[in-house]
Every structure is written in C-alpha cells, then in structure tokens.
Amino acid sequence: MAKLLALLAVLCLSQVIGAERIVNCYWGTWANYNSGNGKFDVSNIDAGLCTHLSYSFFGINDSGEIVSLDTWLDYDLGFISQAVGLKNQNSNLKVLAVVGGWNEGSTKYSAMARDWYKRQNFINSALNLLRNHGFDGLDLDWEYPNQRGGNWDDRANFVTLLREIKEAFAPYGYELGIAVGAGESLASGSYEIANIAQHVNFINVMTYDFAMASEGKTGFNAPQWAVENAINFWMSQGAPANKLVLGVGMYGRSFQLSDNSQNWPGAPCRGEGAAGPYSGSTGYLGYNEICQNNWHTVFDYDNAAPYAFSGDQWVSFDNVLSVQYKMDFALRNNLAGAMIWSLETDDFRGNCGETYPLLKTINRKLRW
C-alpha cells in the first residue's frame, strides 16, 4: 500500500508539473479600425504565442440572448471564422467567445442573471454560437455584478448562472472562463469567490487599472504589490491557485501633469493624458505607442514598474522587466497562467525591436 501511495503521489506531481500553463490572449477586434501601424487583424496574430485566444466582444440583448456587436467585422469580413481558423496553425489553441466588457455595462447582465427565462436564452444562444462557429468555450466578462447599476442579488445570481452554464457545456466539453475585477474592495462586493470558482475552468483576474487620472494624481497602472495583494485576496477567499490567471496590461494609463516639474508617482495631475496615434483614447496608450515615444523612462523598483514622462505627459505601464516580476510571482504561487489585455497593444509589428516583446516574455517564463 505504501508503495502504491508513493507511486500515486509521483504521478500526481508529474501531472501538475507537466500541465501547460495558460497564456490567454484577449483580442479587441475593433483594432481593425486603428490607423496606420496600429491597424490589427487576424493576420497579425501569432497563434503559437497563446494557449487561448479570447475573441472580444459579444454582447447581449434585453432578452438575454448573445448578439454580435459588429456584424460587419464578425461575419461580413469573416473575423470569427478566421480566428477559429488559427487552430490550423496551432492545433492546441482554444478560441473563446468573450461576452461583456466595460462598454456593455452591468444592467442587462444583472437582469439576465436574475431571470430564469433570460438565463436560458443566454445559455441556449451561447451553445448555438459555439457550435455554429467552432469556438471552444465562453469567457463571461460581466463588469461587474452588484456594480454600475446592478444589485446585491447579482452575487448569488452570478453563481447560479455559472452553474447552469457549466451543466449545459459539460456534454460538449466547452470551457468556461470569467474575467473579474481584481482588487479586494471591488471583488468582495461583486463575487462569492469560493462559489464561482467551483463552476469555471479558470478565472482571468484583471490585475491592472489600479490608478486613474480621475484620482487627481499620477499612479501605477499595475504595481507589483497591488497585483500580489489582489491575487492573494482571491486565494484567501477560496479561489484555487490553479484556476487563477494573472492579468497583464499591454498598455499604460496616462496623465496630464498639473506642473511639468512635478513628474514623479503621486504628483498632481489635471486629467487624462493625450490620445496616442493608434489607440485614439485619452488616458490610455498601447505599449506599441509608448515604446516609440522616446520619453524619459524610470523603473521604480519599489513598485516593480516603469513610468515615463515628457513635458506635461506622464504614463505608467508594463515593460519586459516588470512582466518578468509578475510571471515570477505567478510561478511561485502555482497560478494557472497569465492573460493579456490585449494583443493589439503589444508591439506586434516589432517597431521597437522584436515582435510581441511582452507576450514573448510571458511565454519564456511560463511555457518555453
């Protein structure tokens, strides 16, 4: 018996060691509309750098059914079929349909989750979407239960929804993931963490956006201490490490300084930084924009994160070194892997050196 137990222990250990870690690549399909070298479509995706490709986003209607948010991209241009076709380049790639996102809000999802009929509409439309187009699973990105127009019952209703989706997916082997708010204050108000963890294959923890210009001062988008605190909180509340996927932003949060001479973390700001040439949104710069700016850059070792500034513009972001710190933490804690938001904001064209420098750093740590 002792020999048998020892053999079983060795086999279990080898399975854990041999299990491939997740590298989940979110793709914002609207980057097809970006200008110049920011334009991104399926041809720019290196399928070998991802274990999962998360096709973002689908939405829902008032009946709870999943709908396309851009039928021209999804169907007329054939982005869905092209994305699923990447499995021909990487036979192990899983392509997921992502439903939700920040712009979808919370109200419709709150109404769907509390209504049995709307939940069934959601689940049946999910099954049709996955079957008809060859997706391997669903990623539900409800931002966020009990927030932004939701209510306290969302927390329990979310568990019910996930349980029902899991049961419906089981005969087909579809995967079910969720994207969740990271920090303790948000997560504790939105999720019954131990309960939702039972019903999903993995949990994408959005460990970024820890500082915004609305706070009136500069700050780090994803400082190491905040990332670690968030993941440790999720584990303390019953989320198993082997279901937690650590989020890495391939972008920075930007700020307009109130005084150009005060350019350190925590310095006063008067608002969001100027829009970049590709992403076109104030307060937000893709890494592919940041790396070409040639601003003065400082690596802050206390926060294990860089920041850069020029004139009244200031940005906090992740670079190769800070991503290495994050991956070392993921490895030490036996996390399921890492996810990125998002493919189109890494330096996918290699304008600053090698292509996909941040994503390749993740792969070198977790997979290669």
Rank of each mutant, 00 (worst) to 15 (best):
S258M: 10
A197Y: 10
V200D: 06
L244P: 14
S54A: 13
V205T: 08
P306G: 03
E354A: 10
L366S: 03
S54F: 07
G150Q: 02
K94G: 00
N90F: 00
N90V: 00
E20Q: 08
E20G: 01
N121Y: 09
L176K: 13
G134H: 02
A241R: 06
V16K: 15
V42A: 07
A305I: 08
L127Q: 00
G137I: 13
K360R: 14
L73A: 01
F255A: 13
Y191C: 02
A83N: 00
V23E: 06
M327A: 02
S54L: 08
S43A: 09
L176S: 15
Q89S: 00
V248T: 12
L359G: 07
M250N: 13
N124T: 12
T160L: 05
G36A: 13
C269G: 09
S281Y: 04
N61Y: 05
P306M: 04
D139I: 09
A197G: 00
S236M: 02
Y109L: 08
Q256L: 09
V205P: 04
L86P: 02
R119M: 03
D62S: 06
S56R: 00
S35P: 01
R119I: 01
N319D: 04
P240Q: 06
R253T: 10
L130V: 06
N195A: 03
G59M: 00
W102R: 15
K326E: 02
T297F: 10
C12A: 14
N151Q: 14
L161G: 04
W314S: 13
L161W: 10
S68T: 09
G177R: 09
G189V: 02
S261T: 12
T355Y: 04
S125F: 08
N334M: 15
Y307N: 12
A170L: 11
G36Y: 09
A211N: 03
V67F: 03
T207F: 07
M1A: 11
L53R: 03
S35W: 07
M212C: 04
I362L: 04
A211T: 03
K108D: 14
A168S: 06
G101C: 05
S316Q: 06
T29E: 04
H199V: 14
D328R: 03
G181R: 08
D347T: 07
S68V: 09
V323W: 00
T297I: 11
R270M: 10
